[in-house]
Amino acid sequence: MSEMNNMTAAESAATKAAVMNQVPGPDVEGQSPLHHADFAGLAKRGMQEGGIHLRELALLGHLTLRCDSSNHEQVACVAAILGVSLPLTPLTSAEKGAYSIRWMSPDEWLILVPGLEAFSIESQFRDAMPGHYSLVNSSGGSTVLMLSGDNAVELLKKSTTVDWHLSEFPVGKVVSTLFAKSTATIRRTGDQCFELVIRRSFADYIWLWIQDASLEYGLVIKA
């Protein structure tokens, strides 16, 4: 452990052998866990007005980073690669352009990047990151839902035990909690706009739950 902490960037770059490009190119078709729900079709055929707006951000690159927040070299390295600093305060997030970082625990962050950039970002970490850390591409394990609309907060109140008042839950705050009994990482991206990172295996269940929970408000699918 102590030896790994003293590893230079060049030495840790030797661990690159474990990195594989999971998405070789844009011509290879990927299917999100909600492929069968056909959001593109529902956006045309379905309701056009309602209190809940739902969109899937499919096939993003999900990178789980674990490192030491007190290691200034590592924190600086992340900022150099992503152009945005690690959010070190609990339950906060940071975003710049297409890159966003969520605080998951005192030594863990979830980074979302465009799907086709995941491999290049991962490689840059392997080349430049010093010391003892872990970076895992978990893109296939989860998907992202964007929930917005006038009744988005009401739907979240039905599904979670978190306080969603703006004074308690400002824009940018992120929590890992239970959404309808399944784990979800929820971030507020606007007053009425939320981002849910959910498990692939629970995606269909949550899709069914959201349809049921938004019956009284009207569900509008956005492509």
Partner: peptide, 11 residues
């Protein structure tokens, strides 16, 4: 103490 916040027991 890690999240510095109160949460429900079910979590």
């Amino acid at each position: 103490p890690h999240c510095a916040e109160y949460r429900e027991e079910e979590e």
